[in-house]
């Protein structure tokens, strides 16, 4: 029976939804599923709860070096268990992705990113990913070492599979000097309060195609005319034009409003995974090659700075 090891990332005492989703998917494949949790001061009862998502056992690596939210110490910690496994699976996540790639490089194993489907054919693992702007589905197999699978964000729902608490085995990791050389010296938590864009029926989102933070009034006016809220891409949040709480996408919020108006947004996959479930998607972008036109219900090839104010005015006068 194929031995599957699933890394489940967590922030404090909350497991990541993508990690739980990957664990539940792995459990449905019929292999021997072990979950791996890294951190410090981990409670056995909490970790054993992963049995509800399909883990037959849980390995806990508990060490202060694993507390920082950095990937390289986790590669050291998971390596021995990974060498015992046929495949190591990771849900989407910034740290998960770095651990997955570091581990694949260390083990000399193949890695499949953006995975949306996994199958076991006998003992052979097959991973499916969309590629080239989601225009093709690519099925890959693995050879010559441990397979590493990294999921796409929101590809696997974090639904409990009805198992009971799993036995927990604790290991003491050996963290190498160079792995522990980087340190987190500060953290800016996402602000709470304010508007929850996840609850809005209408979102007017903007990206770098809007030109600059001085133009935000334009999207605010359209949001007002539509009775909705303003959202933003990772790029404009990184650039400091908008707060993190407004961000839609892989590292921001996942939203599914009735109407999503994307203004000056290219539609990179990191953004798409956070809003593709919206009811109606309207995209306004002057770049006719922007990927967002491949999945918008209405694509307007034009300058958002020209179209959006006129649209707000037309809707406001209705």
């Amino acid at each position: 029976m194929a031995k599957l090891l699933v890394y489940v990332d967590h922030d404090g005492d909350a497991f990541s939804a993508n990690g739980l989703g990957m664990l539940a998917r792995a459990a449905s494949l019929g292999g021997e599923v072990t979950a791996f949790v890294a951190g410090s001061g981990i409670d056995d009862g909490w970790a054993g709860g992963l049995g509800e998502y399909g883990a037959a056992r849980v390995i806990v690596a508990d060490d202060a070096a694993l507390d920082g939210g950095l990937p390289q110490p986790v590669v050291d910690a998971i390596e021995p268990a990974a060498r015992e496994a046929d495949a190591v699976l990771f849900g989407a996540g910034v740290v998960s992705a770095d651990v997955a790639a570091g581990l694949a490089a260390r083990l000399g194993g193949g890695i499949n990113c953006e995975t949306t489907g996994i199958e076991l054919r006998g003992d052979e693992l097959v991973a499916v990913r969309p590629a080239l702007g989601d225009s093709v589905m690519v099925e890959s197999g693995f050879r010559g070492g441990t397979a590493v699978v990294l999921g796409r964000a929101n590809a696997f729902p974090p639904d409990p599979v009805g198992g009971s608490a799993a036995p927990v085995e604790r290991i003491a990791p050996t963290v190498q000097d160079w792995s522990a050389a980087a340190t987190v010296v500060g953290r800016e938590e996402a602000e709470s309060g304010g508007v929850d864009i996840g609850e809005a029926d209408v979102l007017v989102a903007f990206g770098r195609g809007l030109g600059g933070p001085e133009n935000i009034g334009v999207v605010e006016a359209l949001a007002k005319a539509l009775g909705g809220e303003v959202a933003a891409t990772r790029a404009v949040v990184d650039a400091g034009w908008a707060p993190y709480s407004m961000q839609v996408g892989q590292t921001g919020k996942t939203v599914a409003p009735k109407l999503y108006v994307a203004c000056g947004i290219s539609g990179a996959i990191q953004h798409k995974v956070g809003m593709a479930g919206s009811g109606v998607i309207v995209a306004i972008n002057k770049d006719a090659n922007a990927p967002i036109f491949e999945f918008a219900d209405l694509g307007v090839v034009g300058d958002a700075l020209t179209v959006v104010p006129k649209l707000a005015e037309a809707l406001g006068s209705r």
């Binding site: 922030d11 990541s16 996540g93 910034v94 980087a182 953290r187 590292t251």
Partner: peptide, 14 residues
């Protein structure tokens, strides 16, 4: 400074 799912981390490395 880099973004994660929880906000921003400030990381130092030699």
């Amino acid at each position: 400074k880099r973004q994660t799912e929880h906000g921003y981390d400030v990381i130092e490395a030699p």
